[in-house]
Design a protein around this nucleic acid. Structure first.
Length: 154
DNA sequence: GCCAACGTTGGC
DNA sequence: GCCAACGTTGGC
């Protein structure tokens, strides 16, 4: 059992989109970074929990909690020439890109990035480290507790 | 729109 | 295998 942080651009897919989604669940398509893929493929397990993070938007921050609901399987968008995630070098025999499914646990208040940065105990959070751009990063149990407490505040 | 930081590509 | 050039991310 592991904790994670997963970034999504709310213009693309927001926490509210997840609230409205069928079964409040979604395939995490579009990851095109090997390290993030490897986390999904090799480390993530059904039942792991993740912070749903809004990035590249007016108010970046944690917007909710999700649970990994299906283990990694091939990302169909890599085979679709019309998709922005199309990868001409990937084949069905050896798909390059995989993804998990995630299911909503809860939408929380938006915990802004600035607040995360200002919180004691989160100094070493991977996603907050200088220059980090990875869309999927591990979160320690201690960090998880702190962020959950922040998110539960009114 | 800017820019720092990082990942990927491709020539050698 | 090196590394420069390029593209992308993501906060501001």
């Amino acid at each position: 059992m592991q904790y994670w942080l997963m970034k999504s651009e709310p213009d693309e897919f927001s926490i509210d989109d997840l609230v409205r989604a069928k079964n409040q669940s979604t395939p995490w398509v579009g990851v095109r970074n090997y390290q993030a893929r490897n986390y999904m493929r090799d480390v993530m397990q059904v039942g792991d929990r993740a912070l749903f993070y809004h990035s590249s938007c007016p108010e970046p921050g944690v917007a909710g909690v999700v649970e990994i609901s299906r283990e990694a399987y091939p990302d169909a968008t890599q085979f679709d020439p019309k998709s922005p995630y199309y990868d001409a070098k990937s084949t069905r025999a050896a798909p390059r890109w995989l993804h998990v499914d995630v299911q909503l646990v809860k939408k929380t208040r938006l915990v802004p990035l600035a607040e995360l940065r200002a919180t004691r105990g989160l100094e070493d959070m991977v996603t907050l480290r200088r220059g980090n751009r990875l869309s999927i990063t591990p979160v320690t149990p201690a960090e998880w507790k702190i962020v959950e407490k922040l998110a539960a505040r009114a």
